[in-house]
Amino acid sequence: MRCWKSLLSGLLLTLALMPARAEHEHLAQVTVLFFQHHIEQRQLMVDARVRIKLSTTQRDALEHDIPLYFITRFRLVEHSPLMGFIPWQRTVIEREVPVRLQRARLQGRWLLTNLRNGRQSEAETLEEALDILGTFSDIHLVDQAELHPGIDYRLRLRLQLDRNRLPAALWLESLTDPTWRLDSGWVEESVDQRKLWQR
């Protein structure tokens, strides 16, 4: 029994001493500057601008040629109470925009790759790259025909760092280290009925 107690203590000690980076390091910040929608050719489109400020840890990782993966989700949610009074919501559609940000050392640039369509963008600086990363224009969500008048629709946006696509060795650290967190949380915007149904 004593042997097992020692082993358990050792394991707990190892977990406790796992990289707990100094918390005074700058944390990542995500700010949604604007999140708007419009109808174009009977299609509901969204535009958004997100300001991303990476933490020192994340910048350090990028500087060391570790690519970071970001996922931006756009979700259209339908709010229609059941039997008139029970709160109920349904996701009408969700679009994901997965983007990889990495350093192209040979070219001396920052490379952004949209993993959904393979398109690449380049930027001279990291700030410029983050600016491109946080800019979304004319993201098509749904055909207007699929929507119904009189129903409350909400748009949601969330941008986060995909920690599951970090290098394997970093996963344990990213669990405990707050500087690895980058998540805007869900930002909600009501769909303007006038915009939706005006002719």
């Binding site: 977990l15 796992m18 500087e63 040629d65 570790i66 050392r105 060795a169």
Partner: peptide, 19 residues
Amino acid sequence: AQYQQRAYLRQPLKTAMAV
């Protein structure tokens, strides 16, 4: 790039390997 990555991952790699 790999060298840089590994250099950065040195400590996390040690921890993960130890685990």
